[in-house]
Structures are given as C-alpha cells and as structure tokens.
Design a protein around this nucleic acid. Structure first.
Length: 502
RNA sequence: GGCCCGUUCGUCUAUCGGCCAGGACGCCAGGUUUUCAUCCUGGAAAGAGGGGUUCGAUUCCCCUACGGGCUACCA
C-alpha cells in the first residue's frame, strides 16, 4: 500500500516556518515513498477562522514548490478536503459512538468547569469523577435519561456536548515512530469533548475521522500533538479502526529559545517567518529569498542525510527526495538560525543563472529596466551577482549604476591625499576615451605610475567619487556602464565638496 | 502544579560501545583582489551533572538539573 500523508493546518492565520516545515516533511516522506501528499483544511473553530488564511497556505506551498496532490482546490477521491464541508460525516460518526456507548452527552457549563479547574489545577473530566458531573452517565443526574440515546437527535434540549468515554484500566502504550513506546497512566487521560456546544466537532473527532476516511497511513505532525496521541488511539479503538502510524516532528524554537515560533511573532530578529506577505508583514519572498533556498535550509533543520559530513549542504528538493528517510530525523527541537538561511540563499543565488535571477527577482529590477536596455540589465546583474545574498540587495548594489551617489564624507576623509585634485582632473579628461575600456584602464594605471601616485590612492579617490563609498563592484565595470555625463557630474560634485573633505 | 518529550561547539548536526568527538553557519586570523564582498587557507569553540552496566561509555540504564510541549466546548 502506497503511503498517504497529510498536512492539516487550521486556517486561523498565515502559514509560518513551523507549519512550512511540517508540510515539507510530509511532502518529502510522500515523494520519497511514491506516496500521496494531501492538504486538508481543518476549519472547525469558527471563532478563530480567518478568510484569507487558506489562500495564504495554498499559495505558500505552491510558491515553495511543495504542492499537495489532493486538496480543497485540486480535489481528490476522498473529498471534500475542507472540514466545514464534512459536518454530516462527523455527525454520523458521533451517533455511532453514542449508539455504541463509547461516548456520552454532557451538560456542564463552561463556567462550572472553569471553577472546578481553578479550585484544583489537576482537575480532569474523566472516569474518576464523571458520575458526579452533569452528564448522562451520572445516575443521580436529570440527564441520566439520555443514557441510551442512539443519536444526538434524541437529545431534546439545547446546549450540550458529546464526550469520549475513556475507560482504560491498565497503563496505555502508544507508539511514536521517532521515540518508540510511550506509556501513560490511564488516570491522566480525560473524557475529551468530541462535539462542541455549537454542534461542530473538535479537532480530536474530525481529525481522526478524516484520517481514517482519507486512508491516511502516516500521521506526521508537530510535537505539540504528542500529548493527545493516547486520546486519539482511544478514538480509533472506539470505532474499531486500525490506527495509522504516528510521527511527531520536533518543534521549531525562536532564536531566543523562549518557546516555539508562532504566527504571532511574524518577525524574529528582523527576519520574516512567513514565506509570503501577510497583511503588513513582508514575507521571505518579498525580501528576495528563493523558494529552493528556504526549502533547502528547512530540510536541514531537524533532519540530516546519511552522509552529511561528506556532502555539500546545498541541494534542491528533487535531489534530496531519493535520500530522504525518517532515520535522519532529530528528536529534539531546533532553533531557527536566520544567518544560515541567508547564507543558504546566497549559495542558491550564485548557483542560479543570470536569467533565473532576472526571473526570480524581477520585482527588484524596475529601476534598472527604466535606466538600461534589457541586455545591459542582464550584464549588470552578472557584475553584482556574487554580491547578492537576497533579492533586496539588488536595490542597493544597483544604485551606483542608476544615479549619482551621496558621498560618504567619513570614508572620503580617510582616503584624502594631496593628489586628490590632480586625479580628478586627469580622470575627467580621460573620460573622452572611456569607450575603449581596456585602453582606458591601462591609461589610468600608466598615468598614476608616471605621477608616482600609488595605485591604491588612485583607485580609492575614484571610488569615492564614482561610488560615494569604499565598497562596491569592480570600479572599471561601473565606469564602463555609467554614461560619461553621469561620471562627469560625479567628478564635479566631488570637486565641489573637496573643501569639506580635506 | 500535573503529565509527556528532549539534552554533542553560540546555532544546525555526524557518531548507531573503542572517535585526535567530524562537517556546516557564525566568529577570529592570514592570503588573493584597485575597495568591500566573493574565493582560498588556518584557528578558537561541544558530549548538562551524578550514579550505575561494561575491559571500555557521548553512545545502554537510573536519578537530578535544565529546556520545550500539553494541561479549552483552539487547533
């Protein structure tokens, strides 16, 4: 049987790095086993539902290159893939549990339960006390008359929930594929709510029913779900179903290690945690991170290939798929290191062809295209390519090709010499011959030598004049591209502020 | 508080009882370069602590400490 895995986010907001990584490992698992990767939208919480969220999730997965095989938009043999469209299915299954006495109806008020929890921090609604609470299992209760109902339709009043009847008598063993056997005492288990007062199912019910009906073979999800694994096993048992295998991925921690990353962070250490823009927050895409780089980085967060020490850490998803096995998964949480993400991005940028860069980063190229014909834009990108870590760097690297710079007076002062005026005069006159690039360069060097001006001084003076600061791409490449007029303007400007420099 | 999971350089990780504990990011130094960056070379940097088991433990077991997760009619 071919594996079927799912990514099942709740559409309450944007998809962040943690969710992306969960989706990614599901994707890798599916692709490496020739299985199927399913996206299911778990929108059973109406109070937290966000209408833009599903689109953000789908767009993110597509842009990152890890699209699902079955989803609400694509469809598939086990749809619908949105839980809000499956309410009748959940109702049917709730009725089955009621009929089989694996669940019962309860009428306790939220306030009442809250009071009990406040009084006793360790309060649990379970087999130890359920017979004293407001439910059909309590013989003293007026709700006892519902003890034999076969459907929620048989309850003739409003405001009730359906709870799972957990009656385990011995320690409960569950298996996580990463951690092995996990044993829990039955008295720590709770009679979880399966159907809420509003008539909607909780995660516990809807998720299990859907995983079963959608023939999910491996549940790969975040570690925050590990504590509810025993409950999920009880539900499978209650239905008499075989449970899939479970694998809980370690969480992603914030750089300060103060908890897992969450969408409320939006920005960490100045870096976005969303792939795509969400409301006022620019995503990694908008800053010029490449989808391949993000995936590459995330793959190595909590997972490593067999021979990592011997191999290059830069690769594409496709290259990785044949090597992916769960053996390489880590058990402990990982801290997100944005420096390494950035470095990874740089590697992918420098591995990209110029035309790929033009394609990926077109949003950063507008000004260049307004100033130069396409062939020149391509050449300029070639010149600054190895200076780009992220797309946004193009804006600042390309600046010198587009407009006359602001002179950084501090740096100018550092390199000022008595040759300043002579260099500028000579350079301006030499510009008449700049069309012959190699001759021009030769002449500049020759002149400096004849005047006994150290090359370093010569170049630094010109760099301040042309670039405005002491860093930037090859100076002669810049001279070659920038128009003579603009260069003359730069010389004139530098001359005009020489009094401020010396 | 209770329950669960985890613990190798600052960070991501390799090691499946015998390792000079390897690699990557970052950091530092040197080299290349007309500058910065790139690139190349080198360096500092780790097994949480205590008990066992064993001829031998980073590796297996226990305890403690620390970290994280869960503890909703949220997922």
């Amino acid at each position: 049987m071919k594996p079927r895995v799912r990514f099942a986010p709740s559409p309450t907001g944007p998809l962040h790095l943690g969710g992306i990584r969960t989706a990614l490992f599901n994707y890798l698992f599916a692709k490496s086993t020739r299985g199927t990767f399913i996206l299911r939208i778990e929108d059973t919480d109406r109070s937290r539902y966000h209408p833009e969220s599903e689109k953000h999730i789908v767009d993110s997965l597509n842009w990152l290159g890890i699209p699902p095989d079955e989803s609400p938009t694509i469809g598939g043999p086990y749809g619908p893939y949105r839980q809000s469209q499956r309410l009748d299915i959940y109702k049917k299954h709730i009725d089955i549990l009621l009929r089989d006495k694996k669940a019962y109806v309860a009428f306790d008020t939220s306030e009442g339960l809250e009071q009990l929890r406040n009084k006793d921090k360790s309060f649990l609604y379970n087999q130890s006390n359920r017979k004293e609470l407001a439910n059909s299992l309590n013989p003293q209760s007026i709700y006892h008359k519902y003890q034999n109902i076969r459907s929620i339709d048989d309850v003739d009043v409003e405001n009730f929930v359906v709870r799972l009847k957990v009656n385990q008598s011995r320690p409960f063993e569950v298996v996580d594929e990463l951690r092995g056997i996990i044993t829990v005492e039955t008295q720590t288990l709770e009679d979880k709510v399966l159907l809420k007062r509003d008539g909607w199912p909780t995660y516990h019910l809807a998720d299990i029913v859907d995983d079963y009906l959608m023939k999910i073979t491996h549940v790969v999800r975040g570690e925050e779900w590990l504590p509810s694994l025993p409950i999920h096993r009880v539900i499978y048992d209650a239905f008499g179903w075989n449970a899939p295998k479970f694998l809980h991925l370690p969480l992603l921690l914030r750089p300060d290690k103060k908890g897992k990353i969450s969408k409320r962070d939006a920005v960490l250490n100045g870096y976005p945690i969303f792939a795509l823009r969400w409301e006022k927050f620019a995503g990694l895409k908008e800053l010029g991170y490449l989808p391949h780089a993000i995936i590459n980085y995330l793959t190595l967060l909590g997972w490593s290939p067999k021979d990592l020490s011997q191999r290059n850490e830069i690769f594409s998803v496709d290259q990785l798929i044949p090597d992916f096995t769960v053996r390489g998964l880590q058990k402990n949480p990982a801290v997100v290191d944005f420096d390494k993400l950035k470095w990874t991005n740089r590697q992918h940028v420098s591995d990209s062809s110029t035309s790929e860069i033009l394609n990926q980063f077109d949003s950063f190229l507008t000004e260049l295209y307004q100033t130069y014909p396409p062939s020149d834009v391509e050449n300029i990108i070639g010149l600054i390519k190895n200076r780009i870590e992220i797309g946004a760097d193009i804006t600042k690297e390309a600046n010198v090709f587009i407009r006359e710079p602001q002179i950084n007076l501090n740096e100018a002062q550092k390199v000022y010499t008595e040759h300043w005026g002579a260099i500028l005069d000579y350079f301006q006159s030499a510009l008449d011959f700049k069309e012959n690039a190699s001759l021009f360069k030769k002449n500049i060097f020759k002149w400096a030598k004849s005047k006994n001006i150290p090359l370093r001084i010569m170049m630094q003076t010109l760099r301040i004049t042309i670039v405005g600061q002491l860093s930037g791409p090859d100076l002669f490449d810049i001279i070659n591209f920038v128009s003579r007029d603009s260069l003359i303007k730069r010389v004139q400007h530098t001359k005009s502020i020489t009094s401020k420099i010396n």
